[in-house]
Write a protein that binds this DNA or RNA. Structure first.
Lengths: 137, 137
DNA sequence: TTATAAATAACTAGATTGGTTATATTATAT
DNA sequence: ATATAATATAACCAATCTAGTTATTTATAA
């Protein structure tokens, strides 16, 4: 399952993308605007920073800003950065397929099902999402 | 995530489907043939029976057999019978979409991704799987 | 130098997963 | 009849994962 943390990370990036370039926003503002527990925002920003997507300046008037073009990050990338590799079954995590003949046939089906799902997430960028949200309201 | 139990249930049904009609196979034989813990096979058969897909006769010379045409059961049905409703995110389980504007936009994307995955599982029946496995070996 | 903000790290309750263990029930071969 | 082979049912458990919380440290603008 895609975790709530991954979903939060996407929302955080969308929030950052929807802010004017050159300006910063504090982690607390993000938390308030999006109703995410403040400490979780901080925790997730650490990972987003490690990915090279965001950066923060400390102290008064400090805050977070995007480092990259939001059209360059897709949802799959964010989910995998937060949750690690995606696998709809445990089977798809193991390197070697198992011996069982039915099981091996299943592996291909799981892989196809998963790829169908991932292709949707790959198609949608943070920018798409931020624009879509703005249009909805 | 689709659990190992659901995967086992699919394998059990495929094993049953690959046996000559009219004959039975014991739960222990299924366990041995497919390398599934024997007690888990029993546990899962209880659910498959409840679904109306299998039945068992007790006593010596007893065993399990399919009650329905294996082309009539698809993988999604089995997974949902064992694991309950499938949801790639927690969001898709809640009835009402949340207030957050980005979040609500996300919901539709999750739903599309999930449906793309499920359609693969819906396309494949237990019969398909049993035949595919036989051909592979 | 002090308030403010990010950054880092460690901890936790509750749920889920993948089983195991124990016991009951039933049908049939002898 | 009765021992036995088989299904059936229920309760339990350790390990892992999830969604957080708590505490501490570091940097910087005023």
């Amino acid at each position: 399952m895609i975790t709530k943390k991954a979903e939060y990370a996407i929302i955080i990036l969308a929030e950052l993308a929807s802010h004017p370039e050159g300006t910063v926003i504090t982690s607390k503002e993000i938390a308030r605007n999006r109703a995410i527990p403040s400490n979780l925002v901080v925790q997730l920003l650490a990972v987003l920073k490690e990915a090279g997507w965001t950066t923060g300046t400390r102290g008064p008037a400090g805050g977070i800003r995007l480092l990259i073009d939001p059209s360059e990050i897709n949802l799959r990338q964010v989910v995998e950065k937060i949750d690690g590799p995606i696998g709809i079954t445990r089977c798809l995590f193991s390197e070697t397929p198992c011996q069982n003949k039915t099981h091996c046939s299943l592996r291909g089906i799981w892989a196809r099902a998963q790829q169908n799902m991932l292709s949707v997430l790959e198609e949608v960028s943070i920018k798409d999402l931020a624009e879509k949200a703005a249009k909805d309201c």
